[in-house]
């Protein structure tokens, strides 16, 4: 793992379509706005931002169908925004305001909307997604269940139970691992023996490692993977080496300054700004302003309500 962390600075990024760039920037400014609000004491509870990792769900967006299931995790705002383009509903959920996707009951890390679900226990979704994949295989062949995992999640036995069943039963289960090199405060090489690829291979499951943080490059690498999962009804593990630019949650980044600098050096945001300043500048400003407007709108709403009939 160490070798991949010290790789040379990546080459210049591919120029993106405006829509992709807008979505990347929407997620970035959404996350920055949350940290800003926490800093000012305007948000309650906790949150986990995906700063630096925004490109993962953006790359996957056109590869997924509304009929596919997506299982997200604690660090899921980017996953949600890439699926629904609904910053108002998500922010209302985080803030407990009217219009919240789940009436403020779930909050940042427990969201269910159509075929998108996030929950807050590591690895727990993997067998659940295997069950969904079993259903899809039987009744909607060609569709898949995608689970976002972190590198830390590979400490959980549930992941292996799910991989085993998915391989045995030929389930269209795609595990997307956002390996950001750190599990909360613990470096990956201090919590994961062997490798994720080796673990996938032990189950006879294909594994692809992608080191690029370029949305287009990642998308091109993942396109045949999703096709294969759909066509062959088979599990697959995709491991994206990524970089957590922000803290684990709010202000809890205990990494050394050079480690944070290393993550920042790989941040698509600064590199893209440098490569395409004109396109970037206008879109960045527009998304920043849009998110500010979302914040103002949602912050002005009344508190969300949880009706008796909705309490299970």
């Amino acid at each position: 793992m160490t070798a991949t962390r010290t790789e040379a600075a990546p080459i210049a990024p591919t120029r993106l379509a405006d829509a992709d760039l807008d979505l990347l920037l929407l997620i970035r400014h959404f996350e920055l706005a949350l940290l800003d609000m926490f800093g000012r004491g305007e948000l309650h509870g906790t949150t986990h931002t995906c700063l630096g990792q925004e490109y993962v769900p953006v790359a996957l967006r056109p590869l997924l169908d509304d009929g596919d299931f997506v299982f997200s995790n604690h660090r899921g705002h980017g996953h949600y925004l890439a699926r629904f383009d609904d910053p108002h509903g998500l922010l209302a959920e985080v803030m407990g305001r009217e219009g919240a996707v789940c009436h403020g009951v779930g909050g940042s890390q427990h969201i269910l909307r159509d075929r998108y679900l996030s929950t807050g226990v590591q690895g727990e979704s993997a067998p659940v997604a295997a069950g969904v994949a079993l259903h899809l295989k039987r009744t909607e062949p060609g569709r898949l269940a995608l689970v976002y995992l972190g590198d830390g999640t590979w400490g959980e036995g549930a992941v292996y139970e799910a991989l085993n069943m998915a391989a045995l039963w030929g389930l269209p289960l795609l595990l997307v691992v956002e390996n950001n090199g750190i599990a909360q405060s613990t470096p990956t090489d201090a919590q994961l023996a062997g490798s994720i690829g080796g673990r996938a291979r032990a189950f006879g499951v294909d594994h692809l490692r992608v080191t690029s943080t370029d949305t287009e490059v990642v998308r091109a690498a993942l396109t045949p993977v999703l096709r294969r999962v759909r066509e062959r009804s088979t599990p697959y593990v995709v491991e994206l080496l990524t970089h957590r630019v922000g803290p684990h949650s709010k202000g809890d980044d205990s990494r050394r300054p050079e480690e944070i600098a290393h993550a920042r050096a790989h941040d698509w945001y600064a590199r893209y700004a440098q490569a395409y300043p004109e396109q970037f500048g206008a879109h960045d400003e527009r998304q920043r302003a849009y998110v500010a407007q979302v914040v103002a709108d949602v912050a002005g709403r009344p508190a969300s309500r949880w009706a008796e009939a909705d309490r299970g």
Binding site: P127, V128, A130, G131, V132, L134, L136, A158, E161
Partner: peptide
């Protein structure tokens, strides 16, 4: 045979799979 499945020794995983089926309306 399609709807009665012997599973690996994975109680957590099995109940998780069942939860996934239930989530999908089964």
């Amino acid at each position: 045979p399609e709807r009665v499945l012997s599973t690996p020794l994975s109680e957590g995983g099995i109940v998780g799979v069942a939860g996934g089926l239930a989530l999908a309306g089964q």
